[in-house]
Write a protein that binds this DNA or RNA. Sequence first.
DNA 1: ACTTCGGTTATGGCA
DNA 2: TGCCATAGCCGAAGT
Lengths: 221, 221
Amino acid sequence: MRIISADCEVTYTGRGNTTLARGDRAIIIKNDGSIGIHNEVGNKPMNYMGKGCVHTEEEEDGVIVWRFDSKKEYIEIIIHEIHDDVQMDVDNSIKLVRDGTENDLQAWLLDHPETIFGEDHNIISGEREYQTSAGPIDLMFFAEDGSLRGVEVKRVAMLTAVDQCSRYIEALKSNEKGLEVDVTLVALDVRPNTARLASQRKIPFVIVPEDWREGEECSVE
Amino acid sequence: MRIISADCEVTYTGRGNTTLARGDRAIIIKNDGSIGIHNEVGNKPMNYMGKGCVHTEEEEDGVIVWRFDSKKEYIEIIIHEIHDDVQMDVDNSIKLVRDGTENDLQAWLLDHPETIFGEDHNIISGEREYQTSAGPIDLMFFAEDGSLRGVEVKRVAMLTAVDQCSRYIEALKSNEKGLEVDVTLVALDVRPNTARLASQRKIPFVIVPEDWREGEECSVE
DNA sequence: ACTTCGGTTATGGCA
DNA sequence: TGCCATAGCCGAAGT
């Protein structure tokens, strides 16, 4: 990647419009064609464009103009002065390994329905990504009495998670007529407003302890 | 900011856990204490931490270990070799100016209820951020006949926007008893699924032309 | 190509 | 400070 320190001004046009007045910035141009213009605060660039944009350069009235063009977006940088310009070579084949994602939590919950429904539950089986007319629900458990017990899993549950549950209930009630149906919200963290809304709508929610995996190892012993 | 090209490996612990095997990366440390570890793809760092984390450095068994510590998060970088290490000074006082945001659209719609309700509307007045028990709704218009006509504004409306409308209707109906109430979804783009859900729930929606501001200038003339 | 959804979302605004 | 909603969200997976 190429990293440039420059006195510059930036205009962006595309999904919105932005202008950035003249000043010193760090410009990062990566090999995949993505570009970011950084100030001294935070990880997000002030301006940016995704992979695959085309970089052109020309001189107009004594200043250099860089243009970055994708189909529907456009950045123009007026370069008044370049202070520094370095090249850094970087490995891009090695992938980051994630652990403790929502995906992991889902898989774990599938094997631990007692976390959701209590030790005396009557769940026979369960599956992931059960299809409903409102989209796939994270987990679906099947109980001895024939009832369907859906579960929406989140790391952090906010208001929209409750809305999702409502949509699934709506869909299941109209499609699985005659069957007993409920949907439970399960998360590591449920915000106060979210808990309130869930209660209002009679949607049960369960908070999973942060150390769910450690708890697992203990219970195995 | 300081930018380092280094052969390194990274572990992150906090909201989740990640590991990144040894390889060449670009490490950006900003003055506000944020840090990002970049590969050659995209604008997002592979690993990162927000402003205010504390940087310590020590040597262990011949390799250098950098630690970045905030209250609840933690990054450890094992530095095998530093290829390059540059300092770039950057202006951080100049703000990015945005235009055409949802905020601008809201302000414009407040002055143009006909866009939402048609030329023969009976709106007397309107205000922004009208408080409901489900949070503030973007716009509230007051009609001649005393009815309340809420508007949720989005640039791009997805399913969650419909859910928001439902929440506001829920809240308004229970708190403004006796008054006629409706909520309209207004956006530059309403996705097909979103339109379907809105129709199902009898929530009207309006698509504003992309050139709404230009249209304004024309109609003024 | 487009849509949908998770994310260590980040970031700003407001209570 | 904590909580909520937006974002030019990004990026990935499925269709």
